[in-house]
Design a protein around this nucleic acid. Structure first.
Length: 559
RNA sequence: UGCCUCGUGGUGUAACGGUAGCACGACAGAUUCUGACUCUGUUUGUUAAGGUUCGAAUCCUUACGAGGCAGCCA
């Protein structure tokens, strides 16, 4: 089935846009998604991407992709590439509107010169430490720099020499001249430019001074005629500064900044710093480790882009700092995959079954539906013979009340095959069950109820031992065992879940799964949704990732 | 003890002065060739106190609680 149209939704930002359109403030809407290329995108970014690109789509406007590349010491081309791949995968397109803050360095420089000329900026010679100490505190005003009132000509000269490379990192800085006693610390003469003798991934060594975020961002918005500059709550206190620049510079447009709450998810960390740490210290296998909340990780895990979009639509956009339950995301994943994933049979923990009354060398091709609710998904042939495997926990020697699966003397349906009755249990020396000897009822071919009206409660999956494909299956659980790994004492790493990855070898899959393509997704019946690992799977040695398990009310009831 | 922001069931999210609704969860049941899906039902909420009003989750005041801010990070 193709993507259903994403759900319509309202929020305070769309309300503002409606008002702006109604009042005539804007005729069309331009948003932007402004990642810093210093890491991989995660599900939190997806919320912002869906918001910004979603608004552009709904209002017939456009959304720019602009890389906020103002700090060459942390940014790399690898991230620029992965970010674009992830946004496209999520289903969004910036068309011609790909920009880099570094494209505006010359204009930003000219505007800085103008601020100096206007007496609104000055070159400071204090050290970073001195600047920090004279900023004051949350309750006390700062004290002015001794260089605050130097002549504009002097600042101009120094700023020119800063650009020319005459100073070492940290020796000079350009600051706005606003108010050292302002109750909002951001207005206490913020730094506009710092000296950084670093190679930039785009401008190379052309520059050795780089603008700060606060100075670059709003002006970039204005240059692109962004109407609504949407960012997260931690920039709330920066808005007066954003407005100060716009008000004091001859910018070509009047963008406005709006803030919403970033995404928080239970059992997850979302900060790029921490995700980087997980990668660098080897707690995960990389940015695209299927346990990571990165878009590349979720993609490799098998999460459909549509499910992430739907998730973002259901959590909404507010200013309230909520924490969303991870099961909400999983629910969105199941919702999509239930519709889209073809069904297959796979036995992860095999136990051998012999159908003693089935002819030794006979093989039947059972016709099995690919999807129970969609006839258009067609059918496939699955070989059935005397030697089979079933799931180890689909048999219990001493079944509890209400157990529908196989047990000594009990009869179940082998899905789309036959009714099977367990006649004998074979154990090894240690008492482990190694084989079940069963009989089948020829009158139940295809899994049909027999003419005598007999019924069974349980239907289980199976795989032909003679035809099975052997595979590795990776079961993933949450990366952290604490609901909020960041809360409480100690390091977030203390809460890593040691059972977040279980690797199963020797799993037996029905033959059709042997030719699955990388990334292809299936429902392994009664188990969950799985996809072919796009990185490690090989023809003849398939590797599957469990995307998410099926709901299991039996397991839940057993607790 | 500065400035800014936010408080609606367990978790999220609607209601924009006029019946507190929806999703997920939980619980109970129906259905079922997946103990899935689907369907039905139940449960629980406006932080508090004042005020304005015929009427307040919504407007005002105060209190309480939560979060953000003192990078030459974004």
């Amino acid at each position: 089935m193709s993507d259903s149209p994403d759900k319509a939704h309202r929020d305070f930002i769309r309300d503002i846009i409606d008002e702006d359109l109604a009042s005539g403030r804007h005729q069309s809407i331009v948003t932007r998604f402004p990642p810093e290329p210093n890491g991989y995108l995660h599900i939190g970014h997806a919320k912002s991407i869906c918001l910004n690109f979603g608004i552009a789509r709904e209002y017939g406007g456009r959304c720019h992709l602009r890389f906020d590349d103002t700090n060459p010491s942390k940014e790399e081309q690898e991230y620029v590439d992965s970010i674009q791949e992830d946004i496209r995968w999520l289903g969004f397109d910036w068309g011609e509107h790909l920009y880099f803050a570094s494209d505006y360095f010359e204009q930003l420089y000219d505007w800085a010169v103008q601020l100096i000329r206007d007496g609104k900026a000055y070159v400071d010679e204090q050290s970073a430490e001195e600047i920090r100490q004279t900023r004051g505190s949350l309750t006390e005003p700062g004290t002015p720099s001794p260089w605050r009132d130097r002549p504009a000509e002097e600042s101009l000269d120094l700023f020119t020499r800063m650009r020319a490379g005459e100073f070492a990192d940290g020796e000079r800085v350009l600051r706005a001249r606003i108010d050292m006693a302002h109750p909002n610390l951001n207005l206490r003469d913020p730094v506009l430019y710092r000296i950084l003798h670093a190679h930039h991934h785009r401008t190379g060594d052309r520059w050795c001074i780089y603008p700060m975020y606060d100075y670059a961002h709003g002006q970039s918005d204005a240059l692109e005629h962004i109407t609504h500059s949407i960012c997260t709550l931690e920039f709330e206190n920066h808005r007066p500064l954003y407005d100060w620049f716009i008000d004091n510079l001859p910018v070509p447009a009047r963008p406005r900044q709006y803030e919403f709450a970033r995404l928080n998810l239970t059992y997850t960390v979302m900060s790029k710093r921490k995700l980087l740490q997980l990668v660098r210290e080897g707690h995960v296998a990389g940015w695209d480790d299927p346990r990571m909340p990165t878009l590349s990780g979720l993609r490799r895990r098998g999460y459909p882009a549509e499910s992430i979009r739907n998730f973002c639509a259901t959590i909404g956009v507010t200013k309230y700092q909520s924490t969303n339950d991870f099961v909400l995301l999983e629910n969105a994943v199941r919702d999509v995959m239930n519709r889209t994933a073809a069904r297959r049979m796979a036995v992860l923990d095999p136990i051998r079954v012999t159908i003693t009354n089935y002819p030794e060398d006979q093989v039947e091709e059972m016709e099995v539906a690919n999807h129970p609710e969609q006839e258009s998904a067609g059918t496939r042939r699955v070989p059935f013979c005397r030697d089979l495997y079933i799931e180890r926990d689909d048999f219990l020697e001493e079944p509890p009340k209400g157990y529908f699966r196989l047990s000594p003397g009990a009869e179940v349906r082998f899905r789309s095959a036959y009714f099977i009755r367990c006649q004998e249990v074979v154990k090894d020396a240690t008492g482990t069950v190694v084989e079940l000897r069963c009989t089948y009822d020829p009158d139940t071919r295809g899994g049909q109820n027999p003419p005598d009206g007999r019924k069974v409660k349980g239907t289980i999956h199976w795989v032909s031992a003679r035809h099975a494909v052997e595979a590795e299956v990776r079961l993933y659980d949450r990366l952290f065992s604490a609901e909020n790994p960041d809360a409480g004492e100690g390091d977030f790493l203390d809460h890593l879940n040691p059972g977040s990855l279980t690797v199963l070898k020797g799993c037996r899959l029905e033959p059709a799964l042997g030719s699955a393509e990388p990334g292809e997704a299936f429902q392994f019946e009664r188990l969950g949704y799985f996809c072919v690992d796009a990185r490690d799977s090989r023809p003849g040695a398939p590797v599957f990732n469990r995307t998410v398990g099926l709901r299991d009310s039996w397991a839940k009831a057993q607790k």
